[in-house]
């Protein structure tokens, strides 16, 4: 399994943080790409709510008149032949997105760790960080890297790709 890119969006769809580890094809327009991704995520969220059975967690159960506003999405990941996209949304509307090679399994817990160990500790607790602005902190970047790297250690993730991309994969492993 290889890890490709990481995105962090807030509730309003602004990209707070972007990091790429392995990207074999350079994106043409990263802003456009992020916008498309945000659109996709919002659409999936809506769809999940409208398709899900009534006893879905996002709907009120045994509650009175008032219910929760459209809560965080239960959507977790999707897989294509080429990559897998993992998704975690906090109750505060932060959206963590990670792309990996296919068959990476469920990485929700990894994204929750990024939320807890990187976002909360290095962004929220930094008095100089303004909520909703892009995160430029080096500490934050390193923390994200180290969380992702811990996964790499666990599952031997960042192995060089078998198909001739070995060199680039290895170098990005190091740059982690």
């Amino acid at each position: 399994m290889q890890i490709y890119n990481f995105y962090l969006f807030n509730r309003h769809g602004n990209c707070l943080f972007y990091r790429e580890w392995q990207r074999s094809r350079a994106g043409t327009d990263s802003q456009q790409e992020q916008q498309n991704l945000v659109g996709l995520l919002f659409a999936i969220k809506q769809l999940c709510v409208s398709v899900a059975p009534v006893n879905d967690d996002s709907l009120p159960r045994g509650t009175r008149a008032r219910h929760m506003p459209l809560g965080p999405s239960n959507f977790r990941n999707y897989t294509t032949a080429k990559y897998q996209l993992h998704y975690f949304e906090s109750s505060t509307g932060l959206r963590f997105v990670l792309t990996t090679s296919p068959n990476a399994g469920d990485l929700t817990r990894l994204l929750q760790r990024i939320y807890k160990e990187a976002y909360v500790e290095c962004a929220v607790r930094n008095p100089m960080y303004r909520l909703g602005s892009a995160i430029v902190s080096d500490t934050f970047r390193k923390r994200v890297d180290s969380v992702v790297r811990s996964l790499a250690v666990e599952t031997n993730v960042l192995r060089p790709a078998p198909d001739g991309q070995g060199g680039s994969a290895r170098s990005s492993t190091k740059s982690l």
Binding site: T63, H67, M68, S90, T92, L94, Q112, L131
Partner: peptide, 22 residues
């Protein structure tokens, strides 16, 4: 509060809330 809420969500392991009263 704007900030603390994330700290709370990440660390408390409280179940998600389904209603305001909850």
């Amino acid at each position: 509060g704007l900030r603390l809420v994330d700290d709370f969500l990440a660390r408390s392991a409280a179940p998600p809330c389904r209603s305001f009263a909850a």
